[in-house]
């Protein structure tokens, strides 16, 4: 096999594999989206993929064609040109425009995540080395190192902080990650659409057992939640 053939096959294969790998598991994550914020993030992600795919395919495509087409051959001299102002203006202006366009949905999604609606349930999330403490101030319930329980369909507002080092509260299907900084309180909100058990884990290096600082959220019906919180209040 000549070097040219190898190039052709390998590069083509890699570009295709890259494209396939990019979209497939992204789907797996994106199909899991269970909060309005996660849905918004998903929409934004696909817009970004759409806009940048154009440049990705164009650039890798030109590279591939150039590599195949302009291989040195006896008797063919290289071209002499090395400037073209109009071309340079075009490849400055079009990507710049694309960035401006992309910033629109990015900023509106950001605003949406940022604006905390009136909440039904207020919780406090406190990071410790290496477990999570949860508090329900309205019910006077505090516990640690067991799953967080929340009602489905209700707006949850969480205050996130830490008592020792920095941790990060991260539940992928919620579209949420918030650093737990000692000395600061950060705010997030979410509204889980489906009953179920959701997994996440600490996302900021916090010491030896950072890899074992798991998060489990049990999302249950309102009735189940009320029953659960009553039991917790009694200290069961």
């Amino acid at each position: 096999m000549t070097l040219g053939n190898r190039w052709r096959l390998l590069t083509l294969g890699l570009v295709l594999a890259a494209a396939a790998l990019w979209t497939a598991p992204a789907g797996a994550w994106l199909f899991d989206a269970v909060t309005p914020v996660a849905h918004e993030v998903r929409n934004l992600f696909w817009k970004a993929v759409g806009i940048t795919a154009f440049f990705f395919i164009l650039a890798e495509g030109i590279l591939l064609v150039a590599v195949l087409k302009f291989r040195a051959k006896p008797g063919r001299a290289p071209a002499k040109w090395h400037e073209n102002l109009r071309l340079e203006l075009v490849w400055t202006a079009i990507p710049a425009l694309a960035m401006v366009i992309l910033s629109g949905p990015a900023f509106s999604t950001m605003k949406y995540m940022e604006t905390i609606p009136k909440s039904d349930v207020q919780i406090e999330v406190v990071g410790h080395q290496w477990f999570w403490e949860y508090r329900y101030p309205k019910y006077g319930v505090v516990f640690a190192n067991e799953p967080l329980v929340l009602p489905v369909g209700k707006t949850i507002a969480a205050n996130v902080t830490s008592i020792d080092v920095i941790h990060s509260w991260f539940v992928p299907p919620f579209g949420i990650k918030m650093d737990a900084n000692p000395g600061r309180i950060n705010h997030v909100w979410f509204q889980v659409e489906k009953v179920g058990k959701y997994e996440g884990q600490c996302a900021e290096l916090c010491g030896v057992l950072h890899g074992q600082m798991f998060i489990t959220v049990n999302v249950v019906t309102s009735e189940e939640f009320d029953r659960w919180i009553e039991q917790k209040k009694k200290g069961v």
Binding site: V41, L44, A48, A106, F170, P172, G175, E204
Partner: peptide, 10 residues
């Protein structure tokens, strides 16, 4: 893009 970054940050 902040919302995407937050999702995959760290």
């Amino acid at each position: 893009l902040v919302p995407f970054d937050v999702q995959v940050h760290d």
